[in-house]
């Protein structure tokens, strides 16, 4: 009993280790493929199409997400601050949270749901119907033809989508605070402007770069390695979303640590800028 449990644990560990290795290699090939595609005009059209599908068509949902985040924050935080007579500081709280954390993370989660699922289902169906093998049989590298344009589109456009989410989050927070809750507009903006630095804005956008890369490469990996049949594709989509979501949260935490360390190290130099 004990021995078989140990064997099961060992084989599971080996399998997970294998999968992790395969996934890393896939992501590496996807990233190098994207880089190589930059120098080959044949792939521009493909990347352009993916940018349209992934980026442009996500703008409305991303904007809605951002707006609701800002509006809800305003509603929730107002009472606490008003109790202490600090309601004019609402702007700092909302804008810092939106720009640094909630905007990027929720936008990325929205994207993971919207494009992650679509990418996995599309590539998974192509795998099941042998279309990926057909690409290989005609002497084309499916990583460069299918994965690289999608990874590139996600990498480049997620930061821009996050800017949209931030914009609508700031506007949503402003409208609810000023129009509905009656906070003084001038005080709201001046506190916001003094509290939110360019650094806060830029780390949110830099996070988007990593989130985009993680969403695209995980979704493409799951699509490329999905099992046969409708159930296999469905399961791959679920796994892709869960894995993207977890990696977004984990990356967010890791980047939070890293950016804090960078900020603390270079903070004294800020006066030089």
């Amino acid at each position: 009993m004990g021995e078989s449990a140990l064997a099961a644990f060992g084989s599971k560990a080996l399998e997970d280790f294998n999968n992790a290795g395969r996934c890393s290699r896939f992501i590496w090939r996807g990233l190098t493929g994207s880089f190589k595609n930059l120098f080959s005009a044949r792939y521009y059209q493909l990347t352009w199409n993916q940018m349209n599908i992934i980026g442009v068509r996500s703008v409305p949902v991303i904007m809605v997400t951002g707006a609701f985040v800002g509006m809800t924050l305003a509603i929730q935080a107002y009472d606490q601050l008003a109790f202490m007579g600090l309601e004019e500081r609402l702007g700092v709280l909302i804008n810092i949270s939106v720009v640094k954390e909630l905007g990027p993370v929720l936008a990325a989660v929205m994207l993971a749901g919207r494009i992650g699922g679509a990418l996995t289902a599309e590539l998974g169906t192509m795998k099941v119907t042998e279309q990926i093998e057909a690409i290989r049989s005609m002497g084309t590298n499916p990583i460069r033809y299918l994965v690289a344009p999608r990874v590139m589109a996600c990498l480049l456009l997620t930061p821009f989508l996050i800017i949209y989410a931030d914009l609508l989050g700031i506007m949503g927070g402003f409208f609810v605070s000023v129009l509905q809750l009656g906070v003084n507009s001038g005080a709201y903006w001046s506190y916001s402007a003094s509290g939110v630095e360019f650094w806060d804005l830029s780390i949110g956008v830099i996070k988007g770069f990593f989130f985009g890369g993680a969403i695209a490469s995980i979704s493409c990996y799951k699509g490329f390695h999905c099992r046969e049949g409708a159930e296999g594709v469905g399961q791959a989509c679920t796994e892709a979303f869960v894995a993207s979501f977890i990696s977004i949260l984990a990356l967010n935490f890791a980047m939070g640590l890293i950016f804090k360390a960078i900020y603390n190290t270079f903070w004294p130099l800020r006066v030089l800028l």
Binding site: M126, T129, E130, Q131, A134, R136, S137, M138, G139, N141
Partner: peptide, 23 residues
Amino acid sequence: SENQLSKIRTSYGFLFQGGALFD
């Protein structure tokens, strides 16, 4: 490697079971 094979594979035509046309 797959890249080295790409040239050789142009000498082949493969008809897949379901056709495998790109939808």
